[in-house]
Computed example of a mutant assay.
Amino acid sequence: MSIAQRLNQIRSRIGDAAAKAGRDPHAIRLVAVSKTRPLEDIVEACRAGQIIFGENYVQELAAKAASIGDPLEWHFIGHLQSNKVKYLAGLVSLVHSVDRFSLAEEISRQWGRLGRSCDVLVQVNIAGEATKSGTTETGALQLVRDIALLPNVRVRGLMTMPPFFDDPEGARPYFAELKRLSDLIAAEAIPGVEMGELSMGMSGDFEAAIQEGATLVRVGTAIFGER
Results as ranks from 00 to 15, higher is better:
residue 57 Y to V: 01
residue 60 E to I: 05
residue 62 A to S: 12
residue 63 A to K: 15
residue 63 A to T: 15
residue 64 K to C: 08
residue 65 A to M: 06
residue 66 A to F: 00
residue 67 S to P: 01
residue 68 I to R: 00
residue 70 D to V: 05
residue 70 D to Q: 15
residue 71 P to C: 06
residue 72 L to K: 07
residue 73 E to R: 14
residue 73 E to M: 09
residue 73 E to D: 15
residue 74 W to G: 02
residue 74 W to K: 00
residue 75 H to V: 05
residue 75 H to D: 10
residue 75 H to G: 05
residue 75 H to A: 05
residue 76 F to V: 00
residue 76 F to C: 03
residue 77 I to W: 05
residue 77 I to P: 02
residue 78 G to T: 13
residue 78 G to A: 07
residue 78 G to C: 04
residue 78 G to W: 09
residue 79 H to N: 14
residue 79 H to I: 13
residue 80 L to W: 08
residue 80 L to F: 10
residue 81 Q to P: 11
residue 82 S to I: 02
residue 82 S to E: 04
residue 85 V to P: 03
residue 85 V to L: 01
residue 85 V to C: 03
residue 85 V to Y: 04
residue 86 K to N: 12
residue 86 K to G: 04
residue 87 Y to T: 05
residue 88 L to T: 06
residue 88 L to Q: 04
residue 89 A to I: 02
residue 89 A to F: 03
residue 91 L to R: 13
residue 92 V to C: 12
residue 93 S to P: 00
residue 93 S to H: 07
residue 93 S to N: 09
residue 93 S to C: 11
residue 94 L to P: 02
residue 94 L to K: 10
residue 95 V to C: 06
residue 96 H to D: 07
residue 96 H to A: 04
residue 98 V to N: 00
residue 99 D to F: 02
residue 100 R to L: 00
residue 101 F to M: 02
residue 101 F to G: 00
residue 101 F to C: 00
residue 102 S to D: 07
residue 102 S to W: 00
residue 103 L to E: 04
residue 105 E to L: 04
residue 105 E to C: 13
residue 106 E to L: 08
residue 106 E to D: 07
residue 108 S to I: 13
residue 109 R to A: 14
residue 110 Q to T: 10
residue 110 Q to S: 09
residue 110 Q to V: 11
residue 111 W to F: 03
residue 111 W to L: 01
residue 112 G to H: 10
residue 112 G to D: 03
residue 113 R to K: 15
residue 113 R to Y: 08
residue 113 R to C: 10
residue 114 L to E: 14
residue 114 L to P: 13
residue 115 G to H: 11
residue 117 S to G: 11
residue 117 S to V: 14
residue 118 C to K: 11
residue 118 C to H: 09
residue 119 D to I: 01
residue 119 D to Q: 14
residue 119 D to S: 15
residue 121 L to Y: 01
residue 122 V to R: 03
residue 125 N to D: 15
residue 125 N to W: 09
residue 127 A to T: 12
residue 127 A to W: 11
residue 128 G to P: 10
residue 128 G to F: 10
residue 129 E to P: 13
residue 129 E to D: 14
residue 129 E to H: 12
residue 130 A to Q: 12
residue 130 A to Y: 03
